[in-house]
Simulated assay, not measured.
Amino acid sequence: MKFRFHALFGACLVALLLGLTPLGAVAQEVEPININTASAELLTELPGIGPSKAAAIIEDRETNGPFESAQDLTRVSGIGDGTVANLEDQITF
């Protein structure tokens, strides 16, 4: 009985460790996205940026010139301080 418990416990431990392995892959660092050169498709990978906001970002940069800081994104309709705060570490200029 004791042997069965140890074997079962060991198997569960191995399964748990193997199950957690992909979590390390998810935590990999991702290159920041350049707001001034990114396509609409790439911009939609940012949290809180869907197709319409991505299009608005591109339209704004074509009309008003490049963004120089994350705060400049607030000039795009629908992007406020909260969205900017979530994006700051994921974008570059």
Rank of each mutant, 00 (worst) to 15 (best):
T83G: 08
T92M: 07
Q90G: 07
I79P: 00
D60M: 14
T63S: 12
A85N: 11
R4C: 05
L87S: 13
V30T: 14
A25C: 13
L17F: 10
L87C: 09
T37F: 14
P66R: 02
F93Y: 10
V76E: 02
G82R: 10
N64T: 03
G50V: 09
Q90T: 09
K2D: 00
S52N: 15
L20G: 10
A85K: 10
V26M: 11
L18P: 05
F93H: 10
V14G: 05
V26W: 14
R75C: 01
E31N: 09
A7S: 03
A11F: 14
N34T: 12
G24P: 05
G82A: 04
T63M: 09
A56I: 08
L46A: 01
L16R: 05
L8A: 07
L8C: 13
G48I: 06
E88I: 13
C12S: 10
A25L: 15
E59W: 11
L17D: 05
Q90R: 15
S69W: 03
Q28G: 09
I79C: 01
A25I: 12
K2R: 10
P51V: 15
A70E: 07
V84E: 02
N36P: 02
G19C: 09
L43V: 13
T92P: 00
F67I: 05
A40R: 12
G65K: 09
A25Y: 14
L18K: 07
E88N: 04
A25Q: 14
L23R: 06
G24M: 12
P32E: 14
L20W: 10
K53H: 09
L18R: 07
M1G: 14
H6L: 00
F93D: 11
I35C: 05
D60W: 14
L43H: 06
A40Y: 13
L16H: 08
S69P: 02
T74I: 06
T92L: 01
Q90C: 10
L87F: 06
Q90P: 01
E41Q: 15
I58G: 03
D60V: 08
E62K: 15
A85Q: 10
P22N: 08
H6V: 00
V30F: 04
L73V: 04
F67K: 02
L43C: 05
D81H: 06
T21V: 13
E29I: 03
V14K: 03
L43Q: 05
N34Q: 08
E41H: 13
T74R: 08
G78Q: 06
D89M: 04
D81P: 09
L43T: 07
I49M: 04
T44W: 02
R61W: 06
L23N: 08
T92F: 01
K2I: 00
F93N: 10
I35K: 01
S39L: 08
P51F: 08
I79R: 02
T37H: 11
I33W: 03
G24T: 08
N86P: 07
A7F: 00
L87M: 09
P51N: 12
N64A: 13
E68D: 15
V84Y: 01
L8G: 12
P66D: 11
L16F: 08
A70G: 12
V14E: 01
G82D: 12
E29C: 06
G82S: 11
G82M: 06
E59N: 10
I57Q: 02
I57C: 00
M1E: 15
G10R: 01
D89P: 03
A27N: 10
